[in-house]
Design a protein around this nucleic acid. Structure first.
Lengths: 344, 344
DNA sequence: AGCAATCATTAAAGCGGTTTAATGATTCGG
DNA sequence: CCGAATCATTAAACCGCTTTAATGATTGCT
């Protein structure tokens, strides 16, 4: 590869001039510009992004940190997230670095990544990475609330207690009392928040809240979200003839629907199914179409990106955005008495 | 941010020593190591990835070039691709840079990106980028065949003529003659190849091949793949009572199914639907479950990554991999006479 | 003790750009 | 025609790390 020096020499100018020709930061006379460009073309010269980044301390890259287990695929959530983040970033001329590498615990392995800012998915409790990014002076936006609370860190999140409360309230109003909740993995804040919201709904209705009606997804036990929905439903239904089930995602709901089919349970006649959705298309096109809570994960993603880009221009702003879930009535829940169907 | 110099000074050693402590490329005595590490921790020092990359000419990042229209989302294909590429790369310690930025035509804007290799989706005809990567000496793997043919460039692709032929052959054997093909965008090589494969199948069966039974997706006309399937089916069925339709993707097939429902057409009794699938879950969980051609896009992605990583270690190897499509029989095609259901 | 061999550490030269202060060349008004 | 102002260009320092060749400090051997 030809370097800027080679081009400068061949064109009979200094590297500073060549630099200016390419970066356009300083005006260069038409003749010189042309000469340099021609030489560069002939030599097959392209400015080196890394060297440039080092000099200007900017990469025009946003990091998206999401742990990914070796074997399994990106979840619907992650995909929606990538979607939202990428869309916003590319509009502003930024690219996205998918950082799926597992964290090393060797402190010599931490490095200041080639990114101007970071969006971090699923922060863990007391996540040490948060502190590290602060030290590095790299703008950070979390997706999911920081735990413990931290006023100094930006984040976007669903209002997961509201989500839990809303579906609980809705189902209880429909007269359901034995409700199965196929929750996500137990150690996630979303799981905790949604469950507590649901419990609150029971309380508000003066209904008995029983924790054993909540199941948790586990990577070890369940091969895939669909399998989780299927297996959990098959098992749980043996114990108790639930009349409603809340599924953590559309795909979990698909598993439930399959189980229901096999068990000869009519949806929604005998069983109402409601999905905490992250894939609108899927929810809409399944039969029966899934009544669901629209989580707007993509909005979450683009908001995270927007906030991050904002922070990058204007350091030490902190900002967070809570996105409410919206109930979308479709065909997988039985509609009783009081409620009106509201369509999509 | 503290730099390596600061740490060296504070620890009373040279930068070379600090460098070795972090990179572990040269043994450093236990005492010195410890002292340096402590100082580094106190000062909040983290090695700068960009500077490091510049020095060692390696970024441990793989670029994934995929044009993305400003407004629209990642397609199922792209998602599967990201999945496959990411999985393979992260296993080998590489990260993935999503390069969704539209190409500039200003030659001063081309830069040698901070990547060790590139996977490029949907290369266009005579794609000038291919030549550019060669000049830069950056290993490149295409997803989709190069057009015109080029012996010097690695690529992975489905055998799209085979795919077209296979579904055509299958449907014709089932006795269908009026077959609608909802193909992808006309300017893509996949569209061309699949159509020609299909035409070949007609020829092989001595059936009349009519090009007007092929429709093409267009970003301008169709809001989404689902809409494409829906609209195209609604329109086309007015002209002719097709007995089979080949949908470009699962999502297109969903649109077709919806149209069929609205038109009162029974699937598969009155209409066989077959999807050139890129989302196995979706195909399996829809009612009726979609008979489809499994394209194994994810395999394509991880193969592309594998080849690329290989090339990065061992320059000037060229390699390509053609992945055959497999027919997966489910419930959306009517089974006639001769064929046996093979299940999944 | 004396000399070679071994080992940890260092100084300095890259990597390929950007940027600042200085230098020439040109223009311009008086 | 001269000095000031304007403009394009350059030389050199810098960004933060790696690496090579050189330097001391130890060790081993006779």
């Amino acid at each position: 590869m030809a370097t800027i020096d080679d081009v400068a020499k061949a064109a009979g100018v200094s590297k500073g001039t060549v630099s200016s020709v390419f970066s356009k930061k300083r005006p260069i006379s038409k003749q010189v510009t042309e000469r340099v460009l021609n030489v560069a073309k002939d030599m097959g010269y392209f400015p080196n992004h890394v060297a440039r980044s080092l000099a200007i301390k900017k990469t025009m890259i946003v990091g998206l940190k999401m742990p990914i287990s070796k074997s399994s695929n990106l979840s619907g959530f992650e995909i929606q997230m990538i979607n939202g983040v990428t869309k916003e970033c590319s509009q502003q001329g930024y690219r996205v670095l998918l950082d799926t590498l597992p964290e090393h615990d060797d402190p010599t392995q931490f490095s200041m990544d080639p990114v101007d800012g970071v969006i971090m998915l699923n922060p863990r409790k007391q996540d040490p990475r948060i502190e590290r990014f602060k030290q590095m002076g790299i703008p950070l936006v979390l997706v999911g609330r920081p735990d413990p609370e931290d006023e100094t860190v930006s984040f976007v999140d669903n209002d997961n207690r509201q989500v839990g409360f809303m579906v609980g309230d809705y189902l209880l109003k429909q007269g359901h009392s034995s409700i199965l909740f196929l929750n996500s993995a137990a150690d996630m804040t979303v799981a905790v928040d949604r469950e507590s919201g649901l419990a609150e709904a029971f309380q508000a209705h003066g209904a008995l809240w029983q924790q054993n009606h909540v199941l948790n997804y586990s990577r070890k036990l369940h091969k895939s979200p669909v399998e989780y929905g299927y297996m959990a439903m098959m098992e749980a239904y043996k114990q108790l003839k639930y009349t409603a089930v809340i599924a953590d995602t559309d795909r979990v709901a698909l598993g439930v629907l399959r189980a229901a089919r096999e068990l000869g349970i009519e949806v929604p006649a005998d069983l109402s199914v409601i999905a905490l959705s992250n894939d609108a298309t899927l929810a809409q096109e399944v039969t029966p179409r899934l009544t669901s809570v629209e989580l707007e994960v993509e909005t979450l993603g683009s908001e995270a990106a927007r906030i991050l880009l904002e922070m990058m221009g204007n350091p030490d702003v902190v900002c967070n955005r809570i996105v409410e879930g919206k109930l979308v009535f479709r065909d997988s829940c039985q509609i009783n008495s009081t409620m009106n169907e509201m369509g999509e």
